[in-house]
Computed example of a mutant assay.
Amino acid sequence: MTARSANVHQARLLRLLRDLGPQSRVALGDRVELSRSKLAVEIDRLLETGLVVQDGLAASRGGRRSHNVRIAPSLRFLGVDIGATSVDVAVTNGELEILGHLAEPLDVRVGPVAVFERVLAMVAKLRDAGLADHFDGAGIGVPGPVRFPEGVPVAPPIMPGWDGFPVREALSQELGCPVLVDNDVNLMALGEQQAGVARSVRDFLCIKIGTGIGCGIVVSGEVHRGVTGSAGDIGHIQVDPAGPPCACGNTGCLEAHFGGNALARDAVALAEAGRSVELASRLEAAGRLTAEDVSAAASAGDPVALDLIRQGGSRTGQVIASLVSFFNPGLVVIGGGLTGLGHTLLASIRTQVYRQSLPLATGNLPIVLGELGPVAGVVGATRLISDHLFSPA
Rank of each mutant, 00 (worst) to 15 (best):
205 L>G: 12
238 Q>F: 09
350 R>K: 13
358 L>N: 08
251 T>G: 13
383 R>Y: 07
369 L>D: 00
360 L>E: 14
99 L>G: 10
105 P>G: 06
281 S>G: 10
260 G>R: 07
181 V>R: 01
20 L>H: 11
345 L>E: 04
224 H>W: 14
271 A>P: 14
205 L>N: 08
122 M>N: 05
257 H>D: 00
53 V>E: 15
36 R>D: 13
342 G>M: 09
11 A>N: 09
292 E>S: 12
348 S>W: 06
389 L>T: 07
288 R>D: 13
62 G>S: 08
276 S>Y: 04
169 E>H: 05
5 S>F: 09
85 T>F: 04
243 G>V: 13
155 A>D: 15
292 E>V: 05
240 D>G: 08
14 L>V: 04
330 G>T: 02
299 S>N: 14
171 L>M: 15
113 V>C: 01
43 I>T: 13
225 R>T: 12
306 L>H: 11
192 E>A: 05
229 G>L: 07
215 C>Q: 07
142 V>M: 12
346 L>R: 02
33 E>F: 07
152 V>R: 10
247 A>S: 12
104 E>I: 03
131 L>W: 09
40 A>P: 05
238 Q>I: 15
88 D>R: 10
186 N>M: 02
4 R>E: 13
375 V>A: 12
325 S>I: 01
71 I>K: 07
28 L>G: 03
75 L>A: 13
65 R>P: 15
304 V>H: 02
59 A>E: 15
311 Q>V: 14
310 R>S: 10
382 T>H: 03
135 F>V: 03
206 C>S: 14
34 L>I: 05
319 V>G: 09
267 A>L: 05
281 S>A: 15
49 T>D: 03
254 L>T: 09
22 P>N: 06
359 P>D: 13
290 T>S: 15
203 D>C: 08
63 G>C: 11
58 A>M: 08
349 I>D: 10
382 T>E: 11
287 G>N: 13
8 V>W: 09
142 V>G: 08
19 D>C: 03
125 K>S: 14
354 Y>Q: 08
110 V>H: 10
69 V>P: 12
186 N>C: 05
99 L>A: 10
126 L>I: 04
323 L>T: 01
253 C>G: 04
52 V>K: 07
174 E>V: 02
102 L>F: 03
183 N>Y: 00
391 S>E: 03
257 H>L: 11
381 A>Y: 01
308 L>T: 04
253 C>E: 10
345 L>M: 14
387 D>M: 01
20 L>V: 02
53 V>F: 11
13 L>E: 03
61 R>C: 13
114 A>L: 14
251 T>A: 15
356 Q>C: 04
383 R>L: 05
106 L>P: 08
378 V>A: 14
